[in-house]
Simulated assay, not measured.
Amino acid sequence: MKNILITGAASGIGAATARLFHQQGWRVGLLDCNRQALAQLAAELGGAWNAELDVTDAAAVKAALADFCAGQGGQLRLLFNSAGVLRIGQFETIEPAEHARILQINVLGLINMTHAAFAYLKATPGAQVINMGSASGVYGVPELASYSASKFAVRGLTEALEIEWARHGIGVGDLMPPFVSTPMLNDQQVQAPVLRRLGVNLGAEDVAQAVWQQAHRPLVHRPVSLQFKLLYWAGQITPAWLSRLMMAWLSRP
């Protein structure tokens, strides 16, 4: 049973992943809150199953999972939690409601999806959950404070469930890319200093390839791009104060 259900599927990383897995012969399910873009992608992929969804609506999430998996023999090989939002800016200039929205979608939405998918994953040999993490979940990034907080939560949830769900035969891991050229990033009105210093060296297709690698050679955390792999593994052996010093330098105006 080679099927994948993708949140945030209508654009960016989600759409690139849907195209790649469809090309490889997987059955693809698409979920997104953008009805028009979702319908266009579904048509491009030969009428792929799709549903408009707000991942923060737990009841709607359960209904969407039930509908998709009903056509898949009650099984789900891979859940890709790709839905997410970003707001770059100094913390105090962003309204609390916007900070809350970032956490609700990036964290609560992911929890809703993963919780609702459990029974279908458990019924599927080799089932996996792949969460959209970030390099911002390794050390807090100035001017991405609430986004970083959400990705730290994703990292913690991934680590816990990777151990907890092993007894059910369900693999759990996340992807950790640095900045990726997607509409979510490119539509930002503010550019953080760290973004100017590190640059944007990844496209959505690069991360889709990492999803494919993760589906076949799972890791708990999969750093994406050579640049960040070096930073990530260096961070595992250097003291915390050195990581802070590096982030402070990268974030200088």
Rank of each mutant, 00 (worst) to 15 (best):
Y120W: 10
A100M: 11
A149E: 02
A119P: 08
A97T: 15
S146G: 05
L144M: 14
L110C: 09
K122L: 10
A153I: 07
A97S: 15
H99C: 02
F118D: 02
P96D: 02
P96Y: 06
R155F: 00
I105E: 01
P125Y: 14
L110I: 00
E143G: 04
F118A: 10
V154T: 03
S136A: 15
Q104K: 11
L108I: 15
P96K: 07
V154W: 01
A116I: 03
A123D: 12
I111K: 07
A135W: 08
S146K: 06
K122H: 15
I102G: 06
P125N: 13
M113D: 11
L144V: 11
R155W: 02
V138H: 02
A116L: 06
A117S: 13
A127Y: 01
A153Y: 13
A97K: 15
A116Y: 00
S150G: 04
A135D: 08
I111T: 13
Y139L: 06
A117Y: 06
A117Q: 05
A145S: 15
I130S: 01
H99M: 03
V129I: 15
T124V: 06
Y139D: 05
R101H: 15
A127E: 07
N106H: 07
F118C: 00
S134T: 11
S150E: 05
A145W: 08
F152P: 10
N106K: 02
I105D: 06
I102S: 08
Q128R: 14
I130A: 02
K122G: 09
G133I: 09
A123G: 03
A117V: 01
F152C: 08
E95W: 07
V141I: 14
M132G: 08
A127W: 04
V138A: 00
G133A: 10
A97C: 13
A145G: 14
Y120C: 10
V129F: 03
R155Q: 07
Q104W: 00
A123V: 05
